[in-house]
């Protein structure tokens, strides 16, 4: 188990929680988790996965298979229909609002397109969680913000507004904001989408380096197979609301499982069909109905 860095927040609860985090053998654990946005259609059915402290885990699978929903379950924005979601040993589904917010203060999340606050500058975006969640003075906040921006290579862009940033820069600023409170767990929702190869490699390297520097754990929801195989420690493949395959990058590369092979090679036909299930094509054309 990795040694965690010291507490960053000043209140007693957070201080105590950090000891619990250090002591707990899993960062995230999902046991038989099922979830549906409406009862008639379940997005997840019996998902089991484990993220250990210090690990970077990738969740992969086709669009709409429930990967982002897993991040929402971990963040507590939705609660499982059945099963347990535990973050550092605490059951997220059973948390009240106060406990949920306490848990979230130890968690950083990078959204697909950064989700930067458009009315705040780069500096103020990174300072936002520090101003809102800590009682630190402006001088200390300034130093911390500059350190976080330096870590992502954008100290020189601190006075820019979000609309002046490229996609890759916005993602890096969001990453700096995500690590502002030195989180124990980072969640990444498709961090590589829409990036050029250089920005993509930069974000990938930063994810790995920052995870190791913070002694944190990370979960990455992504479609980018090649980048993921280079930076993550473990991969889960989700399909049909379940974990259909898992393993280390080495195991995944060597896997003969049809789903894994089709996914990492990007084959159009395979166990995941090209066509959405539908009625007979000829009779539908002839019927003239919509």
């Amino acid at each position: 188990m990795r040694v965690q860095s010291g507490p960053t927040t000043l209140n007693f609860h957070a201080f105590l929680s950090n000891f619990i985090i250090v002591a707990h053998p899993t960062a995230v654990q999902l046991d038989d988790v099922a979830f549906g946005y409406d009862r008639s259609k379940m997005v997840l059915e019996q998902v089991n996965l484990t993220v250990r402290p210090g690990q970077i885990v990738a969740l992969m699978g086709g669009s709409g298979c429930g990967k982002t929903t897993i991040l929402r379950l971990i963040g507590g924005t939705v609660r499982p229909s059945s099963g347990t979601v535990s973050v550092f040993g605490e059951d997220v589904g059973a948390m009240d609002t106060e406990a949920l917010y306490r848990m979230r203060s130890r968690l950083g999340m990078l959204f697909q397109f950064g989700a930067l606050f458009t009315d705040l500058s780069v500096f103020d975006n990174v300072a936002f969680p520090l101003r809102e969640r800590t009682g630190l003075g402006e001088r200390m906040i300034r130093d911390l913000v500059l350190m976080k921006l330096q870590a992502v290579g954008l100290r020189g862009a601190r006075n820019l507004m979000p609309h002046q940033l490229s996609g890759g820069m916005a993602r890096r600023v969001a990453l700096a904001r995500g690590i502002a409170l030195d989180p124990r767990l980072m969640l990444f929702d498709e961090p590589f989408t829409g990036l050029d190869p250089i920005s993509l490699a930069t974000i990938g390297r930063l994810v790995r380096e920052l995870n190791d520097a913070l002694g944190a754990s990370s979960i990455i929801v992504t479609h980018d197979v090649q980048e993921s195989l280079q930076i993550v420690d473990y991969l889960y493949f989700i399909a049909g609301g379940r974990v259909v395959a898992q393993g280390t990058p080495k195991e995944v590369r060597a896997s003969e499982q049809p789903f894994v092979r089709q996914f990492i090679r990007g084959e159009i036909e395979g166990v995941v069909p090209f066509h959405q299930s539908a009625g007979d094509y000829r009779s539908e054309l002839l019927s003239g109905a919509r």
Partner: peptide
Amino acid sequence: GLMKATEQLAAMEMMAVEPLAR
């Protein structure tokens, strides 16, 4: 509405900041 569409409100919630209050 745009803050919601661009996930700014969700980001705030994940930072343990209540969007209704902020």
